[in-house]
Design a protein around this nucleic acid. Structure first.
Lengths: 217, 217
DNA sequence: GGTCGATGTGGACATTGTCAACATCGAGTC
DNA sequence: GACTCGATGTTGACAATGTCCACATCGACC
């Protein structure tokens, strides 16, 4: 029953339930909550927030409509779960890219790290426009501290390396965030969504150049 | 019958139909299309894209459900109409603010105009978050040439005035647009929506400062 | 005065979120 | 080892919605 691409569950199943895994009788599912979230994530990935439909989630999980109400108060709570999943993936994507930077020169490393933070943000938003939209769905709003902290760290490093002027540091997060966030939406689901990849990459590079220019000491 | 706040119809009713206005028998409405769009705009203003519900629009217009189908192929077409209305208002807001600039020094005037373009964009997005969301709803996407042209003009002026370095001019629209667009969403319906007005204004001022810094020769 | 196409109406259907009542199962208790 | 009880699923129902079809009504033109 309930076949699942385990990969998409990696971050969902907590170790405890993972141990208790049993093949399941037809009635009590055993891991319904996780299975439902996994199905909801898949729907969100395919069709965005509006595509996350309780009854379809139940159908894909091979369970009756209404079963979800034993695990989520309402649709919004399920949405919030998917949003958190997306935000976690965004954090992970950013962290991975930042860690890949192998430069010793402090200034160059700070610049590169800030750039990778921005690139990763956009990369995830464009790779998963549906989940990104869910993560920023007005009713949803999961914890943002992961991505925000990575940006803060990158900016601090720019300051320490002397790449950024000190009087620009306070509140510098916002202009940077707004830039990549706006870019993500314009190119991910907005009016620029059909711009070919080459052009889009060039535009992103230019955006990151301008952000650097704006911070430079 | 069909009471309407005429003010909200100003930009909708075309002169021709306006002349033909008649008090109407109960059946054939006479200006149903305009009345429906007006009601849809009001709903969009109150609750955003998801709030624009055909049956509610019909109810508010005092007409049967289904009546709308004589004027719009489906809900999306009605949405598109509202989106166009919002985009027109955005253009108007921007134009108004740009025109208010009364500075003679060319450099200072170019800077101020670019700034007002950005301020107006954010101002409208924050004043009408629902309509702004409709205007950028993925399925919608009305004509953007109005706002875009105003930005282009402002940047051209910055170049001519010598405030912006020439090699940064090509493609300069994008970074600017992304910045104000991202800001609008983060503060209008996103994670920053509860930031108090004072703080928000300061953040916007800083964003515009950084944009100027990024373009400076 | 009569006809006909445009415009509204009423009814129907499938889909959805959600509630209430009922069914089933496994973990403790005697 | 049988029993009970709370957690977990299921069935059925309801109202709201987008959309389709058949029918009603009206005004412009012959």
């Amino acid at each position: 029953m309930w076949t699942l691409s385990t990969s998409s569950l990696d971050r969902l199943a907590d170790p405890e339930t993972a141990v208790t895994m049993r093949p399941v009788s037809t009635y009590h599912h055993g891991h319904l909550r996780e299975a439902l979230v996994a199905a909801a994530v898949e729907l969100g990935r395919e069709k965005g927030p509006d595509g996350i439909v309780i009854r379809e989630v139940a159908r894909r999980t091979g369970v009756s409509h209404n079963a979800a109400y034993r695990h989520f108060a309402d649709r919004d709570e399920l949405l919030r779960e998917v949003a958190t999943y997306g935000m976690d993936q965004l954090s992970a994507t950013m962290l991975k890219r930042v860690r890949r930077v192998r430069v010793t020169d402090p200034v160059e490393r700070a610049r590169r790290r800030l750039r990778e933070v921005g690139k990763a943000y956009v990369e995830y938003a464009l790779a998963e426009p549906g989940l990104f939209a869910v993560a920023f769905y007005p009713v949803t709003l999961p914890d943002l501290s992961g991505p925000y902290q990575l940006l803060t760290d990158a900016l601090d490093e720019c300051l320490e390396a002397g790449f950024m002027s000190a009087e620009k540091r306070p509140g510098a997060e916002l202009p940077c965030w707004a830039g990549v966030h706006g870019f993500s939406l314009l190119y991910g689901s907005g009016p620029m969504r059909d711009v070919p990849r080459r052009q889009r990459d060039a535009d992103l590079a230019q955006l990151l150049d301008r952000i650097e220019d704006s911070l430079r000491a």
